[in-house]
């Protein structure tokens, strides 16, 4: 089995995450799609690290995880704040900036 299979798996997961972000309206599920995309990129990083025989890819993947965790915390807090004021978790209902 070629190591490229891992890369193709990462691509498939990334595309599914993108489809989730585009299709779903529930802000929480959209957020999970973003997480899936970040994880797919992490898988690609780990695979490329193995292809190159160095640990740099894994270090970068670790930093991606840290940034993703910080993003989740802030994003979920924003979703909760919007839900508190607008009683909805749908991304279509958050239209306060609309003219």
């Amino acid at each position: 089995m070629s190591l490229m299979n891992y890369v193709y798996l990462a691509i498939v997961l990334f595309a599914i995450g993108a489809a989730t972000v585009l299709v779903r309206r529930n802000a929480i599920i959209v957020f999970m799609g973003i997480e899936l995309m970040l994880n797919a990129v992490n898988l690609a990083f780990v695979t490329f690290a193995r292809m190159n025989g160095s640990l740099d890819g894994q270090a970068v993947a670790l930093f991606v995880m840290v940034v993703a965790a910080a993003e989740v915390v802030v994003g979920l807090a924003i979703i909760m704040t919007i839900h508190r004021s607008r009683r909805s978790a749908s991304v279509d209902d958050a239209n306060l900036l609309k003219l």
Binding site: R24, R25, N26, I28, I29, F31, M32, E35, A68, A69, V72, V73, L76, I79, M80, H83, S88, A89, S90
Partner: peptide, 18 residues
């Protein structure tokens, strides 16, 4: 992270569907 997601789903409402 996923348990945090579950907590927020619980707070926002399990039946807050699309």
């Amino acid at each position: 992270v996923m348990m945090l997601f579950l907590f927020v789903i619980m707070l926002v409402g399990v039946d807050a569907s699309d």
